[in-house]
Design a protein around this nucleic acid. Structure first.
Lengths: 134, 134
DNA sequence: CTCTTATAGTTAACTAGTTAATTATTTTTC
DNA sequence: GAAAAATAATTAACTAGTTAACTATAAGAG
């Protein structure tokens, strides 16, 4: 992520803030839990990131109309401008990495990582005490 | 790393502290830069981790005999005891992951990750201005 | 030998990951 | 419909990643 981080540092946002902004740009107004899922963030991290993005005027929040527990988060014009200003360079860098590393190998890598995540959860169970299952 | 972290939490250390302790146990007295290299940590992180480990009496430091800039860090008996108490379970968990995920696939994954790290560095160079090279 | 440069390590400031506790609201159950 | 359980989000406390600035010591150049 080095090159991407450098570019984003110039734009004044971090990698995670950028990821959240992209979710907001693509999905329109969404609640925090959905952002967390799509941006791979835990809720406490997301809470802080949204506070920062709001302070920077890159997003705004309002109450969910029918469920007052939820927030509806929306990107602002400034946020969208930031995305549009940096998306080409971001895409260029990713394309360069993909080309240098090999598209197939990159896909293999991502597949393996996904599988490993699932594998670990299974391996996390303590052996020999399966009282509720089976 | 979930299962490992759970085990280490019981032992009162974090993943990174554990990694540093293992380097200390395997290498004997070493300077901080070498620990950072082997444990994949940046120096500022390592500085903090060593301070914590020292506070917990799991390691100690003294001056390097010929270079007073360097520290020589060494594991204590308590640190070694912690390693010995937890190494079997740690190895068991890793073996379980390896078995569930597949030894070959795990090796492939690690190889790909190493390659990607190197690839990214190359991709980081700005294109079109190679004045010093070529 | 002194001035410059490089190296080892620390500190500072900010951001994020992690777990647990907490608040507010909604849904379920009796 | 009220008590209990579940859910959305926040806060707190701690640890670590990251960059930059800084201190102390060592090595090299004149």
């Amino acid at each position: 992520m080095g090159p991407i981080r450098g570019m984003l540092a110039n734009a004044g946002v971090t990698e995670q803030q950028w990821r959240v902004l992209r979710v907001l740009a693509e999905r329109g107004p969404v609640d925090a839990t959905q952002i967390a899922g799509e941006a791979c963030l835990l809720m406490p991290s997301l809470t802080r990131i949204l506070q920062i993005l709001e302070k920077k005027r890159f997003c705004s929040r309002r109450r969910h109309p029918t469920d007052r527990r939820r927030a509806l988060v929306e990107i602002t014009a400034a946020g969208r401008a930031l995305i549009e200003a940096n998306a080409p360079e971001s895409n260029r860098i990713f394309a360069e990495i993909e080309a240098a590393f090999g598209k197939e190998r990159l896909e293999t890598l991502l597949d393996l990582l996904n599988d490993l995540t699932e594998t670990e959860v299974v391996a996390a169970r303590e052996p020999g005490q399966g009282t509720t299952e089976d």
